[in-house]
Design a protein around this nucleic acid. Structure first.
Lengths: 352, 352
DNA sequence: TCCGTCATGGGAACCGGTTGCTACGGCGTT
DNA sequence: AACGCCGTAGCAACCGGTTCCCATGACGGA
């Protein structure tokens, strides 16, 4: 039995020092690596470290000014595929840069968001990354501006990732992707197939992501000199169930349309199932498009035409810009482009 | 402008004390809440706190023995739907109990796993939750046993979540779900439809999760007095792409089968697409079943018959048992049950 | 042989909190 | 009026590290 059994509680640097017959400062220096220490001393210290299975307390290190700060990200629900992708990007880049990361779900509750940011401030996180769209109200801007200030005054930094920018002056980094542009291109593609009545299955009516995509939907129509029927714009949320429910309702209500554009691929998935349940074929009877290009989009049947968003890259960028920022530098605002991925779910209008 | 602008670096408890005209201990006690402090003193302290926008440094607190410890979980890739579900459960339960959580992806690399566990030990995490199956080799048991010991000696605790148990004696909590039982029931259901040549699309040949499910596949056959053709058991990994590739290969090779059981829903999704591409209908020409019951399973076409695994509950349980454990208590080993969800992708064998 | 220099290691202060112990002032009691 | 108790606040030690500053000893050069 060579391994240390779980007898003692954690050992301190002084325990190591005592066992090696040196002072605590020497142990710290051996472990630190740069200070000159004789080979003999180094050897006995390292042996003591191994014997005691010692690891320096990261929190004590942090307090003393050494140690790498942690990084935090706050999102609504890690279960959503696009959130998960961003989370993955954030996590990957953070560990690549040697930082640990804390994660929190808000479940969409603003109070939780506030609480978490406060906690992160207490943790002295290097940066707090707020992920995902939200309702863009004056109250949101005010509240978030306050968070940004309070984080900045604590030496930390707020990063908005896929979330609307604040008024200029807020110490914040914003990384967005182009919802309006992507939706515009996508809907233009649908219209180019000849569709004239395109149903839009949106998210919550006040949600920036949903709203941006809705603007793209409208802009694409206007660019063709079309004005879409307002009754073709439906609101729900970003879940699969909302897509399913809205689609079924639309069919039951006898709404006329030859194509459906969903605010997210999740919504599209639910809608697709509702379409199938109603005995409608895609794209024969009705065309369908999504948004996000989540990995599953390829495996829907027919494979879903959608807009690819570089979510993972977004997450990576968020941490990189936050961490590599020089304190005095001006605030950054990045807008990432998207592109549509044409698969099999959009075709010319049928005989429907 | 009522808000504190981002001028000063973070303020300390002594700054607050100075501003309130009291000692640091008094500030600490006001903030702590229990110690008796006169209303006047409390008032001026709270005002100073508000003026300075002060938040106590959580790391300093932690070192001093106050403060709630953090909790860590390590998984292969947050992007996988079942991982994400577990992560969600872990995170929810942790914050419900007032703990923050650290997350790390290993990308399947054992060295990363080791490094992360070491970091968590340095962080003095309350518990480290290792999520997801792995190759169950003697080397794995040895290595993980060492991690468990080293964590235990640091006052922390290792939790294995959906991962094979170690030799008795390792200070570890194990929460598993029944892969073999679930697969057994699922395959029994497929066999009961009359299928006799059932293709199994497995994960990596040494991966415990894949292996458990494979055992269930075999056991279900044996229970009916059948011995499955060994050439019907294929190995890949748990990705959608593996399912797609394996399925296409099987079709090209002219393998004979009337049903396919995939090791995960992701694999099933890829396989389904390959089936469609080959012009085969499901379940008309071939039946298909998955495993995991990820949210998307319903939206495949046809809706996927699969095995529901309470992933989120698994995550919740992992943190609860780890955190509420009394130090001396015997090690726990929980095995959660699963149930099959019958949808539309399995039917009687056709004329194929 | 004596002195200056450099390599090395220790002591103590500090990071930012908490808490045990003590001191002080005001009050009620006999 | 003197005594004792209690409520309140401060001092100082401590948590587990890091690092500045200084002491010591060995070494080489004159």
């Amino acid at each position: 039995m060579t391994r240390k059994s779980g007898d003692a509680s954690r050992s301190t640097i002084r325990d190591v020092a005592a066992r090696a017959g040196v002072s605590a400062s020497t142990v710290s220096r051996v472990l630190g690596g740069v200070y000159p220490v004789s080979a003999a001393t180094r050897g006995s210290v390292l042996r003591a470290v191994r014997d005691l299975d010692y690891v320096a307390d990261a929190r004590a290190k942090a307090i003393a000014g050494a140690g790498t700060p942690t990084l935090a990200f706050v999102l609504e629900d890690i279960t959503g595929p696009s959130f998960a992708l961003m989370a993955h990007g954030v996590e990957r880049e953070a560990t690549r840069l040697g930082h640990l990361c804390l994660v929190c779900s808000t479940e969409g509750d603003v109070r939780h968001e506030l609480e978490f940011v406060e906690m992160m401030r207490a943790q002295r996180a290097a940066a707090v990354i707020l992920v995902g769209g939200t309702a863009d109200t004056p109250e949101y801007r005010e509240r978030t501006h306050r968070m940004a200030d309070s984080l900045a005054s604590a030496g930390s930094r707020l990063v908005l990732c896929g979330r609307p920018p604040l008024d200029p002056g807020a110490p914040v980094t914003v990384i967005e992707y182009d919802n309006e542009g992507g939706a515009h291109t996508l809907v233009a593609h649908v219209l180019a197939q000849g569709h004239r009545r395109v149903l839009y299955l949106g998210g919550r009516a006040d949600h920036t992501t949903a709203l941006g995509r809705e603007r793209g939907y409208l802009a694409a129509h206007r660019a063709r000199g079309l004005t879409p029927d307002p009754s073709l714009v439906l609101h729900g949320d970003f879940t699969r169930d909302a897509g399913h429910r809205l689609m079924r309702q639309a069919i039951e209500d006898g709404l006329e349309f030859s194509a459906v554009v969903a605010a997210t691929d999740m919504v599209a998935a639910g809608a697709l199932t509702a379409l199938h349940e109603a005995g409608l074929t895609v794209p024969g009877d009705v065309s369908l498009a999504g948004y996000d290009d989540i990995p599953f989009a390829r495996d829907l049947h027919p494979a879903l035409t959608t807009v690819h968003v570089p979510y993972e890259e977004l997450g990576r960028l968020a941490v990189r810009t936050a961490l590599e920022r020089t304190p005095g530098a001006p605030d950054e605002h990045l807008l990432l482009g998207t592109h549509v991925v044409v698969r099999d779910s959009v075709g010319p209008p049928g005989s429907h």
